[in-house]
């Protein structure tokens, strides 16, 4: 698998590397980074491996911390445990909705901050920064007092509002890292070629900043699906997955929780695999005509 940069089509970075054989030392040194990254990814996945292993455990007590035998029962039982699956559903709803909203709102702010000079830019910068610097409990408690003073009862909606709020800043900062030093020449070239602003955005700007938006959305999703402190204050009667797991950890986390974690993991993994295959096909299809004389 040679490295072919996706977004900068003019580059031919690895062409020389493949056309001649570098000395052994150089070839080995090229392996250092991939091996290092593989190790780092393995480190990230170590606890996940433990989680998956214990989803097959057959604990007889309340606690699921010592290996007591292999079973597949947990994978059947989990579907008859609405007390576990409902919170997961709530969490997924909150995470998806709040990620979409926060990504849109945050990207817009990121665009405004990096592409325009305007009065109030510094204030906005500080406004973006503050939610990240606020201890979660202070944020949770302050939002709770807002709802109480307005007499609004807490629900799924108030959770989503809170999650969008704390996610916006993370999206802005991530997207901004992409936009900074953005080559405006590409946009100008598109405009010179007769594209209007919207077309330029669609065909040039958006594809270029998309990796940033994707990264921001991933971050927002991860933050949202695992938030405990703020959610606990604004949740009312809605139970999200982290709330349930935290509470049940008093008595022992049942293996069905590991099963759900494993399933989410597997689904995401399969989605990734499907995307890889699809991309390969696309690439092959594109290769054929381009080779034709």
């Amino acid at each position: 698998m040679t490295a072919t940069p996706v977004t900068i089509p003019l580059s031919a970075s690895d062409a020389p590397a493949t056309s001649y054989q570098p000395p052994l030392r150089a070839r080995l040194s090229r392996l250092v980074l991939p091996v290092y990254t593989a190790l780092a990814v393995a480190y990230l996945f170590l606890p996940i491996a433990v989680m998956i292993a214990f989803s097959f455990n057959n604990p007889r007590g309340r606690q699921n911390i010592t290996w007591q035998g292999f079973t597949l029962h947990n994978y059947i039982d989990v579907w008859s445990r609405p007390d576990i699956t409902n919170p997961m559903l709530q969490s997924l709803i909150v995470a998806v909705v709040s990620t979409i909203l926060a990504t849109i709102l945050g990207t817009l702010i990121g665009l405004a901050l990096t592409r325009y000079r305007f009065v109030g830019r510094n204030t906005t910068n500080i406004l973006i920064f503050l939610p990240m610097a606020t201890p979660e409990i202070i944020m949770g408690a302050s939002l709770l007092s807002l709802w109480v003073s307005l007499g609004i009862s807490r629900s799924l909606l108030t959770i989503i509002i809170a999650h969008v709020m704390f996610n916006i800043s993370y999206v802005v900062v991530t997207v901004r890292a992409r936009l900074q030093g953005f080559d405006r020449g590409l946009e100008e070239a598109a405009m010179d070629l007769g594209a209007d602003e919207w077309t330029t955005f669609r065909k040039v700007t958006f594809p270029l900043i998309f990796p940033g938006i994707l990264a921001a959305a991933l971050l927002a999703f991860a933050l949202s699906i695992d938030d405990y402190v703020i959610t606990s204050f604004v949740a009312g009667k809605t139970i999200t997955f982290p709330l349930w797991v935290y509470g049940v950890s008093r008595l022992g986390v049942p293996p069905e929780v590991n099963v759900l974690g494993t399933l989410i993991f597997v689904v995401a993994f399969l989605a990734i695999a499907a995307q890889v295959i699809w991309q390969r096909r696309q690439a092959r299809r594109q290769l054929v005509p381009s080779r034709a004389p």
Binding site: D83, A141, L144, S145, V148, S149, G151, S153, S232, F233, A235, G236, K237, I239, L243, W244, Y246, G247, V248, R250
Partner: peptide
């Protein structure tokens, strides 16, 4: 309507206390 909303005495208290103090219903 049975909800498993309590994870921690203090935290649950912190969550319903503002409503109780304001004289609102806690919904429970």
């Amino acid at each position: 309507s049975y909800t498993e909303a309590i994870n921690d005495n203090e935290e649950f208290f912190g969550k319903i206390q503002p409503d109780l103090e304001a004289g609102n219903t806690t919904a429970y």
